[in-house]
Design a binder for these strands. Structure first.
Lengths: 215, 215
DNA sequence: TGGGTACTAGACAGTTCAGTACAGTATAGA
DNA sequence: TCTATACTGTACTGAACTGTCTAGTACCCA
């Protein structure tokens, strides 16, 4: 019988603690050096664990990389509520602007940017990771946002012929300028909070004009 | 005296021919395998040249990579004429739509996508390459387009408070949906020409509505 | 206290690769 | 024809890295 040892001091078995430590270390090392640039010795050292233990928990480097990425990708929760634009205080402009600011800030997190760059760079070697990223990130966000947009349109007596496209247009207007810059210009984020707010506000405003929303 | 040997059969010296062959081979190999995945032996073999010759022409792998990328980046010519939207046949809608289609098709070229992914993936190791790419690509396109937009706005009796931002919004609306998908989902371009045209047309139309252009 | 398991530390084999060395061949100009 | 130079082909060095192996230690449960 293996010792599941349901808890030691913090409610996780020793194996779970090691596993988590390795994953955290691997995330750090992969994010900093890329897939090929990272070494398993480095991961083990960072996790303060022997190399043998790393291989006990993860079959090989590829498996470890896949687990790191899918874990981080799944942990990100877009979570756009359907009633986002139709409930709460303020005009629809206000609500949309506040959503845009919040969402942009989420996407421009340093770690999220690193993840995105890593996934893009390894899209050749690990195509299925790019696909998960897209499905759980941009694609899902657009779909959830589309629901909220249709609701808001109905409330205003408008109808959107293609709510998903509208949602993608909104996300494009808000995100794509700073995001593309960040992809190409490395991590030393040259964005002040004020600059990000401006992108969010201007993007949201342009969207409202394009899709005929007025309060 | 080194033999410059101004021409042999095609007007280029032997050295120039070798150099060009190596650069072309390196581009192919780097694009296919990434920076770390590419080997100098592979480059030499592809160029049908001895490894020694590669090192005669380029100090090391980094230098070769830099030359390949800057060469390809500089060769791309956005070239957006200032009178783009104000001269020629058709309404401004037509001209903008046709520009959008043309530009999108240019950016979605297989090689351009590969270059972009490569530069993004190596942005950590070669930050100055990302910077060049951005300056000569997106940034320059937005600035040139801004001039054309301001002219078109004036012609219509409008005024744009921030023409560069308007240009970036236009480019975002047209490009960012398929471009982001392509970045994440690998090269097996899942885009028909019709699909690209639709993104271009819908993006251009949304832009016209947002910025109050009407013919 | 005893037995089984996870873990540590380090050595190790096997491979890959950047960059160099070298001996010999082709080429172009005088 | 002679000479300087570029080029070829191959072997080599040194370093890094993945994944395995081994011998011994720490931990957990009965």
């Amino acid at each position: 019988m293996p010792p599941p040892s349901t808890d030691s001091s913090d409610g996780r078995s020793r194996a779970e603690q090691k596993s988590a430590a390795i994953l955290a270390a691997a995330q750090q090392v992969f994010f900093a050096n890329g897939y090929v640039g990272a070494s398993m010795d480095q991961v083990a050292a960072t996790a303060r664990v022997s190399k043998q233990t790393v291989y006990k928990h993860f079959r090989d480097k590829e498996a470890l990389f896949r687990e790191v990425i899918t874990k981080v990708v799944s942990a990100r929760d877009a979570g756009i509520p359907a009633g986002l634009l139709t409930t709460g205080d303020g005009s629809i402009e206000d609500r949309l602007r506040s959503f845009a600011r919040h969402f942009l800030q989420g996407v421009m997190q340093r770690d999220v940017l690193k993840l995105r760059r890593l996934v893009i760079g390894e899209a050749g070697r690990f195509p299925e990771l790019g696909q998960s990223f897209h499905e759980l990130g941009p694609s899902r966000a657009a779909e959830e946002l589309a629901v909220a947009l249709r609701e808001a349109a109905t409330q205003q007596g408008l109808s959107l012929s293609d709510p998903v496209l509208a949602a993608e247009h909104l996300l494009s207007l808000v995100l794509s300028i700073p995001l593309n810059q960040a992809m190409l210009l490395g991590d030393e984020i040259p964005f002040t909070e004020a600059a990000l707010h401006r992108y969010a506000d201007e993007g949201a405003a342009a969207f409202l004009r394009a899709y005929g929303f007025t309060s």
